[in-house]
Design a protein around this nucleic acid. Structure first.
Length: 331
DNA sequence: CGACACCTTCCCTTTACATCA
DNA sequence: GATGATGTAAAGGGAAGGTGT
């Protein structure tokens, strides 16, 4: 998990909160007024949310594809939206993990978009030809071949995925004695696998089925594992963002408390000043009169002073400018 | 065109396990 | 070595949207 200072480039609406932060923190972005120095706290999560932009910029889906897109449902907490589950053409800049051998079917070469799509077409009838470095591929393939008979009958894709995963699990896990047990074996992803998924997550925080399969293939994981990893990763991102938001709100609260304290003190001082001034200096604000020459309103008691000030060419900025009214006397 | 069922994907919560101090 | 804290993979369930009938 990487936190990064975000000082701009919040061109997208995904992080409205960060956008606000950015405005606060980046005076050039907008004309922030007062509390820049106080509220200049902005931490953005340098994950995923920028990647979609680059992805779409390089390969913007057609308008027709745009129509086909499902309405983005995936959203984080208010104002935070993860990328919509669009189906951009797969131009994943997949960094090939170093555990994939150079001469393996998938290892050591970068798939072009077309090539990857072509490979994904194969996945319609899954053939997990990638063999883990130390797996029992043959048994897995056999196993999967048997299981795949039910593929066309079962319409629930998750079931299929699970079936694939169960089979793949037997292949990818070293401990095949877990094969029959219903107990889930917690396996930790390798650093390379995590890094690989992390890189992919930076590109896009959500996956479409093709991407999922492609990533699963290349990271030598099951599609379900990739899916779960992305779910958990999004959850972690959200959690971090919540923490950042809380920190920001905390600072806001502190700033406002300090401001309130200062204003209370000012009010108190003014009251003290008012009570200490002689009675005749206190100006009753019962009636308002309009200055005939400058058309400003002043209290009747203060009128002599303001008129005098006006006649002397002094500033009467404390007076309230109002629109001229027919009557010179307002009550 | 609305109702309905089904599927898929997502998020949220919880559980289980691995790792570390 | 036992233990609690922490991190995280995985499961389960509900919500929401898409699609076909």
């Amino acid at each position: 998990m990487e936190l990064a200072l975000s000082l701009g480039d919040n061109t997208k609406k995904q992080f409205s909160f960060l956008e606000m932060n950015s405005k606060i923190n980046n005076p050039s972005a907008s004309s922030t007024s007062t509390s820049d120095k106080d509220l200049g706290f902005c931490m953005g999560l340098d994950v995923a949310f920028g990647g979609h932009k680059s992805l779409s910029s390089s390969s913007s889906p057609s308008a027709e594809d745009e129509k086909k897109k499902p309405v983005p449902r995936a959203k984080l907490s208010d104002g935070i939206r993860v990328s919509s589950p669009v189906d951009p053409p797969l131009q994943l800049q997949l960094h090939f993990p170093n555990w994939l051998p150079e001469n393996s079917p998938q290892g050591g070469r970068m798939l072009s978009g077309a090539a990857m799509v072509a490979e994904e077409e194969e996945e319609a009838v899954p053939s997990m030809s990638v063999s883990p470095p130390d797996s029992v591929t043959s048994s897995f393939q056999l196993d999967f071949g048997i299981k795949s008979y039910g593929y066309e009958r079962r319409s629930n894709k998750r079931d299929i995925d699970d079936e694939v995963e169960r089979s793949a699990s037997r292949a990818s896990n070293e401990d095949n004695d877990e094969e029959n047990g219903s107990t889930r074996k917690k396996l930790r992803l390798s650093k390379d696998q995590s890094a690989f998924l992390e890189d992919s997550f930076k590109e896009h925080s959500t996956l479409n089925p093709k991407q999922k399969i492609a990533l699963a293939k290349q990271s030598n994981l099951r599609p379900r594992q990739v899916e779960v990893w992305f779910q958990n990763r999004r959850a972690r991102t959200k959690l971090k963002q919540t923490e950042v938001d809380c920190e920001y709100l905390k600072r806001c609260c502190e700033s406002l408390t300090e401001e309130n304290r200062r204003l209370q003190k000012e009010v108190k001082e003014l009251r003290t000043l008012k009570t200490s001034t002689p009675f005749y200096m206190q100006l009753p604000a019962t009636t308002l009169t309009m200055c005939p020459s400058c058309e400003r309103v002043a209290t009747s008691a203060a009128q002599p002073a303001t008129s005098a000030a006006h006649n002397l060419g002094l500033s009467t900025s404390s007076l309230i400018p109002v629109k001229p009214r027919p009557t010179k006397q307002v009550s």
